[in-house]
Every structure is written in structure tokens, then in C-alpha cells.
């Protein structure tokens, strides 16, 4: 394992730990903070004066959230994959000897 991939692994591990440790150690129902804020406001007698134009049911909503994450992750993966592929191609100039559109 190179030093670089070790650092990457440790960084990923730290991200996972920052999320997983509270999940195990903290007590609570892990409700959303946005919801907690609206509850606090409603508790003081405020009633919202405008409703969402479109409110999906819980099941559909979780699917749409997944769709949002999937679109983002897909584009991010595409960009990083393309950049990585470009560097690989630049490293092996023999394979792309003739017309190369990269500046390197």
C-alpha cells in the first residue's frame, strides 16, 4: 500500500467515523434539524401561511432524494473518471502517438 492510498483510506475512515460514532453513541431519534426548527416555531403559535406547491408522499420523497444524490454522484464520478483517464492517456504517449488533443 502506497503512502498516498493509506492517507486516502484514513480520510475515508475518519469521515465514516464522524457519522457512525454519533449514530451508535448518541441517543435520540435522529429527526431532522429542519423539522425541529419548524416544531419550535409552531410551538409558539405560528402557522405557516403558504404550502408547498407539490408534496410527495414519504416513499416518493425518499426516492426523489435518492435521485438527487444519484444525479450528483453520477456527474461527479463521470468527471473524476474522465480526468483520471486523461492522465492515464497522457502517461502512455506511445498509445496515442498521433493526433492528441491534450495540451500535455
Amino acid at each position: 500500500m502506497t503512502r498516498r492510498s493509506l492517507v486516502t483510506a484514513l480520510l475515508v475512515l475518519a469521515v465514516v467515523a464522524l457519522v457512525a460514532v454519533p449514530l451508535v453513541a448518541a441517543s435520540g431519534d435522529f429527526g431532522g434539524t429542519d423539522g425541529a426548527a419548524t416544531e419550535a416555531i409552531e410551538a409558539e403559535g405560528y402557522t405557516p401561511w403558504f404550502d408547498s406547491v407539490f408534496s410527495p408522499s414519504g416513499e416518493v420523497e425518499s426516492g426523489l432524494f435518492a435521485l438527487q444524490a444519484a444525479l450528483g454522484a453520477g456527474v461527479l464520478g463521470y468527471v473524476l473518471g474522465r480526468l483520471h483517464g486523461r492522465r492515464q492517456a497522457a502517461r502512455t504517449p506511445a498509445a496515442t502517438a498521433a493526433p492528441d488533443d491534450g495540451p500535455r
Binding site: V19, P22, L23, A25, A26, S27, G28, D29, F30, G31, G32, T33, D34, A36, F65, A66, Q68, A69, L71, G72, A73, G74, V75, L76, Y78, V79, L80
Partner: peptide, 24 residues
């Protein structure tokens, strides 16, 4: 630019548990 937009698209969709027992 696409990567920057995609990063905020993914991260703002995912609610994560935190120390206070709520998630965000």
C-alpha cells in the same frame, strides 16, 4: 464546474446522524 455543482447536489441530499441525536 459540473463537478462543483454535482458535489453540492449529492451532499445536500444526504442527511447524516450527529452527536445531538438529530440529523442534518
Amino acid at each position: 464546474l459540473g463537478a462543483a455543482g454535482a458535489f453540492t447536489f449529492v451532499l445536500s441530499a444526504i442527511k447524516l446522524p450527529s452527536v445531538t441525536g438529530s440529523s442534518s
